[in-house]
């Protein structure tokens, strides 16, 4: 029996809205540690790894680990029916082929429940090694989203180059070329405007912009985003889910022939 009650139910909707265009169906794995989701897009170029810790839930009961295969588009439709301040409770039987979502308004004057059919999805989990990244940059999530949007109007490939002077995003296309450089800014009076760069050694990687732009759909989740890079490894783009967990995106680089 699974029963999990999330007071900030809106976080679930923000996570699903952030990933549903990249991955259509996914297995949500539940264990005593919480909820996890790992899935790749169809081209296996990008991967999402989400974890929501059990202690994020006001009530969490998972008698035995289970994997719930879902269409993320259908899950998004169900979560759209929740009020932004609703408490969301998930319930599923161990051998069940459905999962029930219950939405309660804060004043408990409105309760609704939606039952979603589960699917059999063969999961292709990859082992993501813990990496000591050469460069990590934590910047305002809105800033990252804006860079992706602006550069996408110029080109479809971006070189991200982290040096001691800052992190430079470069693209070029028929229109011309564009450079955006983001510098360390730890003196901003508002914490959410700060940009922190931790550089162990310079690194430059090339990526397809459309994936980085898709990752920016997670912007409503957090004030900051962290990009972590190491030579010839996928970039990790990470959004914290408040203090409950994280939503990580990985994107394979383009390798110069």
């Amino acid at each position: 029996m699974l029963e999990a009650r999330l007071v900030q139910g809106s976080m679930l909707r923000k996570v699903v809205d952030a990933v549903k265009d990249l991955v259509s169906d996914a297995n949500i794995d539940v264990s005593s540690s919480g909820f996890s989701l790992q899935a790749m897009d169809t081209s296996h170029v990008s991967l999402i790894a989400m974890h929501l810790r059990a202690d994020a839930f006001e009530h969490f009961r998972c008698d035995r680990p289970m994997s719930m295969g879902m269409s993320l588009a259908n899950l998004a439709k169900v979560l759209k029916c929740a009020g932004s301040d609703d408490i969301v409770t998930l319930k599923a039987n161990d051998d069940g082929d459905t999962v029930t979502f219950m939405f309660e308004s804060p004043k408990e004057d409105r309760v609704s429940d939606f039952e979603l059919k589960l699917m059999d999805i063969d999961s292709e989990h990859l082992g993501i090694p813990d990496t000591d990244y050469c460069a990590t940059v934590t910047m305002p999530a809105g800033e990252y989203a804006r860079i992706c949007k602006d550069l996408s109007s110029i080109g479809d490939t971006v070189v991200i180059s982290a040096t001691k002077d800052g992190v430079k995003f470069t693209t070029s296309g028929d229109v011309g070329t564009a450079n955006v450089t983001v510098r360390q800014n730890t003196t901003a009076d508002k914490k959410e405007d700060q940009t922190i760069i931790d550089l162990k050694e310079p690194v430059a990687l090339t990526f397809a912009l459309r994936y980085l732009t898709s990752f920016a759909k997670a912007t409503p989740l957090a004030t900051h985003v962290t990009l972590s890079m190491t030579r010839e490894l996928p970039v990790m783009v990470e959004y914290a889910i408040q203090d409950m967990g994280h939503l990580r995106f990985y994107l394979a680089p383009k390798i110069e022939d």
């Binding site: 081209s43 170029v45 990008s46 292709e124 990859l126 996928p234 394979a252 383009k254 022939d257």
Partner: peptide, 14 residues
């Protein structure tokens, strides 16, 4: 010309 890598080349199967 740059070739798009796939994740399997970087992350092993579990």
């Amino acid at each position: 010309k740059a070739t798009q890598g796939r994740l399997e080349s970087f992350f092993g199967p579990v």
